[in-house]
Design a protein around this nucleic acid. Structure first.
Length: 427
RNA sequence: GCUAAGGUGGUGGAGCGGUUUAACACACCAGUCUCGAAAACUGGAGCAGAUAAAUUUUGUCUGUCGUGGGUUCAAAUCCCACCCUUAGCGCCA
């Protein structure tokens, strides 16, 4: 959500931003908000005046009653009653305007950073840089699901019987590798000075609507029946929600945290659940990084955060590239976003393993995350990025470390977490 | 989950229908005093919105005592629902 004052004063900037995102159907929202906002302020002024009048008359009644002047008090009571009738109508107006403005404001996208490349969808995202040699081996690499099954590490059939499509059993060394990657990533971030945190895996609806758009919510979130609770789609949700309605101290900034959680996603729509493997699934585990910082520092952190992901993947010898999200593919709350993609030697292309985003003040405005300033409070900036999200990242790991005999070499940095194991052999 | 007591500013804590414009204390900031500090004294301070003048400060109004409704001329105060805290019981890794 953007600042309504900013919209009031810079409607053209807001419209230009909408155009750059190829969301022309949202253009009318801007003028609608401006008109509703002016009506709303009128109604608010009117209401405030009525309430002021009532307050003073009510006080008069109080003193008259004390003085025993009952008749005079009764006369004023009827006056107040009249004001109340007017107020009731006016309050309905105020509530209607406020609601109408809010639903529109929620749909107006965050102002993007000027450096965001213009493009209409993910096909126009821009490659920034490659790290490591994208090797194409001279032997065939099987589909990742097959490799995982061949080393006895994946059981999709049982998962389908137990939970359905989109779930998995990880078994044996692969399951251990899964944990090893998470633990290694956790320690990697702790060594970067981030604070490790295990958050709630369910959150209330008011937190959900604070951290994501309505469309995202519908497509992603699982709701607990009979409760005001949702399973988190990422620990970002509970980590940002942690700061809801808080006024933070300047000297505590920035908050740099790395959180672990399982993530639950419906994956309704566009891409859907993948049948044969673990690329797109309903449940996965993720180590995340979260930063809450001063507005002027957010792009500095943005650059640090994605470079940590690159460094982590390179330390496991996985070739990656950075891909900047273009305007049309950028989610409405984000001001700038970049994917780190890992190399798939089987498909001979890169695929998304991390997503780094600067939401500037869009989330913090929705949730009321502020910093106490010398001259008034202001909204903090929030950022998030994937550290690592197995099982998806295991696809990159096993493909890039696949040997002709079907075995998987374990990257050296992970061996301490695997009891010194160097290779996973075919079963 | 049940029972009981609670939720008031930065903190403690009063108020339990009408000068509450939230007492009082502590902490905080500014001023006076002082070479400086402490003490003492004086004053000021939350958050959100609207509005006027000015030009970045000042004034006026509204809302805000866990959240949302209700009763009333008037709600921190009474009623209802929810959330949370503490204690006891129950259950459980």
């Amino acid at each position: 959500m953007i600042d309504i004052k900013f919209l009031r004063e810079n409607p053209d900037v807001v419209k230009e931003n909408i155009k750059k995102k190829f969301q022309d159907h949202k253009l009318p929202l801007v003028d609608e908000v401006i008109e509703l906002d002016s009506k709303n302020r009128q109604a608010k002024l009117n209401g405030d005046n009525l309430r002021a009048e009532r307050k003073s008359l009510s006080n008069q009644i109080g003193s008259l009653m004390k003085a025993g002047k009952k008749n005079e008090a009764e006369a004023i009571k009827s006056q107040v009653q009249e004001i109340n009738n007017k107020l009731e109508e006016n309050e309905k107006l105020e509530a209607t305007y406020a609601e109408e403005i809010k639903t529109r404001m929620m749909r107006i996208p965050n102002i993007m950073h000027e450096s965001v490349p213009i493009g209409k969808d993910d096909s126009e995202n821009v490659e920034i840089k490659k790290y490591g040699e994208p090797v194409v081996p001279d032997y065939e690499i099987p589909y990742h699901g097959e490799i995982m099954e061949s080393i006895g590490g994946l059981d999709l059939d049982s998962a389908r019987r137990v939970a359905g499509q989109g779930f998995y059993y990880l078994v044996g060394d692969l399951a251990r590798l899964h944990s090893a990657v998470l633990t290694y990533a956790r320690d990697f971030m702790i060594n970067k000075g981030f604070t490790y945190c295990v958050p709630p895996f369910m959150i209330r609806s008011d937190v959900v609507t604070g951290v994501m758009s309505f469309e995202e919510m519908d497509a992603m979130m699982y709701k607990i029946e009979g409760e005001d609770l949702y399973l988190i789609g990422t620990s970002e949700h509970s980590m940002i929600g942690k700061f809801k309605d808080q006024i933070l101290k300047k000297e505590d900034m920035p908050y740099t945290m790395t959180s672990y959680s399982p993530c639950f996603r419906k994956e309704k729509g566009a891409h859907g659940i993948e049948e044969r493997g673990v690329y797109r699934i309903h449940q996965f585990e993720k180590q995340e990084m979260i930063v809450i910082c001063e507005p002027e520092d957010s792009y500095k952190w943005y650059d640090k955060m994605w470079s940590y992901s690159v460094e982590l993947f390179r330390s496991m010898d996985i070739p990656v590239r950075t891909l900047e999200c273009c305007s049309g593919d950028l989610a409405d709350l984000k001001a700038k976003s970049l994917d780190v993609e890992a190399w798939s030697p089987r498909q001979q292309k890169y695929f998304e393993v991390c997503s780094c985003s600067n939401l500037t003040d869009a989330q913090s405005r929705r949730l009321g995350i502020r910093i106490k300033g010398d001259n008034g409070n202001y909204y903090a900036h929030t950022l998030n990025n994937t550290v690592v999200a197995p099982p998806r990242m295991l696809i990159a790991l096993i493909e890039n470390n696949y040997n002709p005999d079907g075995s998987i070499t374990i990257p050296e940095v992970l061996r301490p977490y695997m009891g010194g194991l160097e290779k996973i052999e075919v079963k």
